[in-house]
């Protein structure tokens, strides 16, 4: 009886693991299947070189570049906000802040990632954009600058929290060795602790980039819906994710070429985040073994 019970539990656990794998495989195959049908009608070469993306217009163009540039632009702005702030926070929390401060502030920072992204999007559109228009009068109502800035705030905890974990995991003995030779706290932080935790910090940055690329609501609400091949942060653009939302909410016919563009865009997005996540997973595995 006991043996049966053990076996039953084991099978149940195995099943739940298998379901997760099966769902992932299912999603990827649907993506791939529909994308393949899309590429039967549109050449891959055009897809990656055409500078216009107008599947919903009469003059149809299927160039992913404008969506990629939009995604790149918002993500780059977000990272340039989140990286310096997130890193400073992590170094302060790990090396300088008293224990009690660290214990209260870290969970509060992580709350930033728990705010629904539609709230951020709304915040960008209603508050940040009008404020920025006071500084840059020619800023459009929808623009990648405001969406990128707000997205940067949102991904701060990805960088600060994971980097802080990595910094904190650096053995106390290394800090003491450095202090013991007459190094100051600042020298120790930047010359010993940060380099020793570099792989963890890189992982945090990659995960943050991956999150920024996949972020949907903020850019859909605040960055606009105009696929445009540009690096100008002042004008409306469209990201891959925002395009998918736009088409999913619209009334394109199921099975049509317009409908399949979602999957072509989706698989491109998936390829990017998959590569980034794989790199971060590899680095993390290497780094875990370093101090054990």
């Amino acid at each position: 009886m006991r043996k049966f019970k053990e076996g039953f539990i084991e099978k149940t656990l195995l099943t739940s693991a298998l379901i997760t794998v099966a769902v992932t495989i299912g999603i990827v195959s649907v993506l791939a299947f529909e994308a393949v049908r899309f590429f039967k009608e549109v050449s891959i070469f055009d897809f990656f070189t055409d500078s216009q993306w107008t599947p919903l217009f009469t003059d149809k163009h299927y160039g992913i570049l404008p969506l990629l540039s939009g995604t790149f632009l918002t993500s780059a702005i977000a990272i340039s906000v989140a990286l310096p702030i997130g890193l400073s926070i992590s170094i302060y929390l790990s090396e300088y802040a008293p224990k009690s401060f660290r214990k209260t502030v870290k969970p509060m920072l992580e709350l930033l990632a728990a705010i629904p992204t539609v709230v951020y999007g709304f915040f960008a559109l209603i508050i940040v954009t009008p404020y920025l228009q006071g500084i840059f009068p020619n800023l459009s109502g929808f623009n990648s600058l405001s969406a990128g800035l707000v997205m940067g705030i949102m991904i701060i905890p990805f960088i600060s929290s994971i980097s802080e974990d990595a910094l904190h995991a650096v053995p106390r003995e290394l800090r003491e060795a450095s202090y013991g030779m007459g190094a100051t706290k600042l020298q120790t932080a930047f010359k010993v602790v940060v380099p020793a935790a570099s792989s963890g910090i890189i992982v945090s940055i990659i995960l943050a980039i991956s999150r920024a690329i996949g972020e949907t609501m903020i850019v859909a609400v605040a960055a606009g819906q105009q696929p445009r091949l540009t690096l100008n942060p002042m004008v409306p653009i469209e990201t891959i994710t925002a395009y998918i939302v736009q088409v999913s909410l619209g009334d394109v016919q199921h099975g049509s070429i317009e409908y399949r563009t979602i999957f072509a865009a989706g698989i491109t997005l998936f390829a990017f985040t998959f590569v980034l996540n794989t790199i971060s997973y590899r680095i993390r595995k290497k780094y875990q073994s370093k101090y054990e």
Binding site: P171, L174, A177, M181, A183, T184, P195
Partner: peptide, 28 residues
Amino acid sequence: RKEVGMVFQKPNPFPKSIYENVAYGLKI
């Protein structure tokens, strides 16, 4: 601490090269 050096219980070299480890105290 430049005058009073310390060697610890567990060897704790920095994850740097041999040269950089020895040069560390001088570089700072």
